[in-house]
Design a binder for these strands. Structure first.
Lengths: 194, 194
DNA sequence: GTTTGAACTGAACGCATGTTCAGATAAAAC
DNA sequence: GTTTTATCTGAACATGCGTTCAGTTCAAAC
């Protein structure tokens, strides 16, 4: 065996998740077969079941890992005032999402393929992320530096706007990532300005 | 036979498209079977092929009809100045999309299930819609009433923000459609303000 | 009352699906 | 050198897929 404690290879598991991620993003969860994933990894389909209980759980784990990484990265933020926190949130959101196009695509498009229990957990994580932006907006309104009529709706609006970058941005295009960040921050800043 | 000229029932064709629309939106194109659609309509699967050439074309037609309706509705706009045109675009976009949640969902999520020729045509229609907003922004910048650093990026950003309404809005919720329109118009207006 | 033809059924086609599992393999453990 | 066990194969299972088509039905046309 490979190790004295635990089970399964430390390498094959991540290789399966990476292959599944790529294929789910390109073809959609329902259109990808276990045999396709196995072929990408270089094994027969049956071997996948040494690492995952079933296809549905594989999808769920990919989504959960993505959202937990997103929340963990935010927990490291240290900016002080509402304006600085909002700029930090904006730039970080764009950078984090641009670096993980496949994860983002799956996390938005394959929600309907989750069974209710898994769906509820993914929604909980997403709501926690939204709550952080709403907190920033409310603090800014209370401090008199933002004018936002409905912080919850503004949260939805801003996150949708920022995540939209993923639909058109391509590395090596007309704009650098830093330029994109600045363009979006400019719009965010003005949209919530007093 | 049903009629002296033409072919096929005038009723069954739309019924098939309506059933397919509902099912594609709820389960995804790949996860819906022709037998499921047929069952919804009340016929056997084979009968569908009197009305559509294949499953792929059914999807394409649904998308094309949706985008052509979107463009046709915009062609009726008559506002004068850039600010009035932008408000009109904003309110109309929200209203049109909220009224057609299934069509919008499909048109955004199932692009990868189109074969290249069909995909190109759908992209062409979407680009035409985006071009109208970009035209408004450019005219506003030229007239000195908008401050937009990059009109193309701002177009993507605003459309993503507005379309995002569909992910959270539910009829009978906390806000009326008119209130939602006004909240979003407020953010759009400020985001492009000088 | 016969002809016509659109509309539909029901079975069939070959192929793919997620998942299971007995058995083979090979490397680590002792 | 034997035992242990993580890992994988390859076949099988029942089920479902999109699509085709010969044959049936039945209302309109003449």
């Amino acid at each position: 065996m490979a190790r004295t404690q635990g089970s399964h290879s430390d390498i094959t598991g991540p290789r399966i998740r990476r292959a599944a991620l790529r294929l789910f993003a390109r073809q959609g969860f329902a259109a990808v077969s276990m045999r396709q994933i196995a072929s990408e990894v270089g094994v027969q389909a049956g071997a996948l079941y040494n690492y995952i209980p079933d296809k549905q759980t594989l999808l769920y784990e990919l989504m959960r890992e993505h959202l937990e990484a997103l929340l963990a990265a935010r927990a490291a933020a240290t900016s002080a005032g509402p304006a600085a926190r909002l700029e930090d949130f904006t730039r970080h959101h764009i950078r984090f999402h641009i670096e993980r196009p496949d994860e983002v695509f799956i996390a938005y498009m394959e929600l309907r393929n989750l069974e209710p229990t898994n769906f509820a957990e993914i929604e909980r994580l997403r709501r926690a992320y939204e709550d952080e932006l709403e907190r920033i907006l409310r603090d800014g309104v209370a401090a008199g530096v933002f004018a936002v009529a409905d912080p919850r709706i503004a949260t939805y609006a801003l996150i949708a706007m920022l995540t939209g970058v993923n639909t058109w941005y391509r590395p090596g295009g007309r704009l650098s990532l830093a330029e994109v960040e600045t363009l979006y921050w400019d719009m965010v800043r003005k949209a919530v300005a007093v």
